[in-house]
């Protein structure tokens, strides 16, 4: 991917503003929105490593999210250990699971791969929701709140900075994938595996690495999310909707770009928060209207603006600079 220099400035500005938010804002509701935007952005950025940079479109990334969420929740609720240990366990398990999915990506292409990832996340969903003795089954697990950094019992401001840290780190991974040797080679694999092989690139191994990295990154945010929200529900954390949402944020923002997942998250999470607030008093289910908008937006974006918001911005910039010339 050619580097979008202006995009970097937008990213610096966005993350900079977020860093300043807690200084001026004490409203828990607004801080909550900021945290969710960052976490969703980081999740989408994690998905983007596989779906965007490696071109392996997964509809089962919720599996890794759930692994991270459950590892930490069980570690804290059942074993009274630090969620950070759960985070590490989640990463380890996701590396294994990601390796399996990565292996599948070498055997299966396009819709077959997407179907296999859905099946994978569904198996985990069934296990998590039916293995009552260990996971508490479909009731889910409340995550105990114990104040302190080691226990991830943090206030809103601390959460903003933690989420920001993850977001910036993941943005950095994206930049690395756009500028490093491995990143260029991965782009080659995404564009044409056979041609990449002819140029000396071990394409299969590289794809497995990318999917595994993406899985581990997703798991980390899964852990933070569970600790932040305080509850793990198997039907949510392993849902196909969640997997779709990672992809959706990324595609609307700009697939295969560093900033795209964060822009998509900003737009969609804000829209969701606004609509939920506006329609929450109305008859049940009406808050779901934002999902109707998403779905429709997804159809329209892949058809008419496949490069997403970042691509649209680049297009407009070219047009305006031509107009000025």
């Amino acid at each position: 991917m050619p580097a979008l220099a202006p995009g970097r400035w937008v990213a610096v500005a966005l993350f900079g503003i977020v860093a300043l938010v807690p200084a001026g804002v004490r409203d828990a509701y607004l801080l909550d929105s900021v945290i969710l935007i960052l976490l969703w952005g980081a999740l989408s950025a994690a998905w983007n490593v596989a779906g965007g940079y490696a071109g392996q479109v997964s509809l089962g990334h919720a599996a890794f999210f759930g692994i991270g969420a459950y590892s930490a929740a069980l570690m804290t609720a059942r074993f009274q250990q630090s969620p950070w240990l759960g985070l590490m366990l989640g990463v380890a398990l996701s590396i294994v699971a990601g390796g399996v999915i990565g292996y599948l990506s070498n055997r299966l292409r396009g819709p077959y791969f997407a179907l296999s990832t859905i099946a994978f996340s569904q198996v985990l969903l069934i296990v998590a929701s039916r293995w009552r003795g260990f996971t508490a089954g479909s009731e889910g697990i409340p995550v105990p709140f114990r104040p302190g950094f080691w226990t991830l019992g943090l206030g809103h401001v601390a959460w903003v900075y933690l989420a920001l840290g993850v977001a910036v780190l993941y943005y950095g991974v994206a930049i690395w994938l756009e500028t490093s040797r491995v990143g260029y080679q991965l782009a080659g694999v995404r564009e044409d595996e056979d041609a990449a092989e002819a140029l000396g690139i071990a394409s299969r191994r590289l794809k497995v690495y990318a999917v595994t990295l993406s899985a581990a990154m997703t798991s980390v945010v899964g852990t933070f999310w569970a600790q932040y929200v305080g509850f793990v529900d198997p039907f949510y954390v392993f849902s196909i909707d969640l997997s779709v949402r990672f992809a959706l944020n990324t595609i609307i923002g700009g697939i295969g770009t560093g900033l795209g997942p964060f822009l998509g998250s900003l737009l969609i999470t804000s829209l969701e928060t606004y609509l939920r607030a506006t329609f929450s008093g109305m008859k049940t289910g009406f808050a779901g209207i934002y999902l109707v908008i998403y779905g429709t937006a997804l159809i329209l974006v892949v058809r008419f603006v496949p490069e997403g918001l970042t691509g649209l911005a680049a297009r407009l910039r070219v047009r305006s600079s031509r107009a000025h010339a």
């Binding site: 050619p2 040797r181 080679q185 782009a187 080659g188 564009e191 044409d192 041609a195 000396g200 690139i201």
Partner: peptide, 22 residues
């Protein structure tokens, strides 16, 4: 061709095989 990449990036991916520095 790596269709979405520039001509330069296409060729550079070949060169990266023996030149690790971008």
């Amino acid at each position: 061709p790596f269709g979405n990449l520039s001509v330069l990036d296409n060729v550079m991916i070949g060169a990266l095989t023996h030149l690790p520095r971008v």
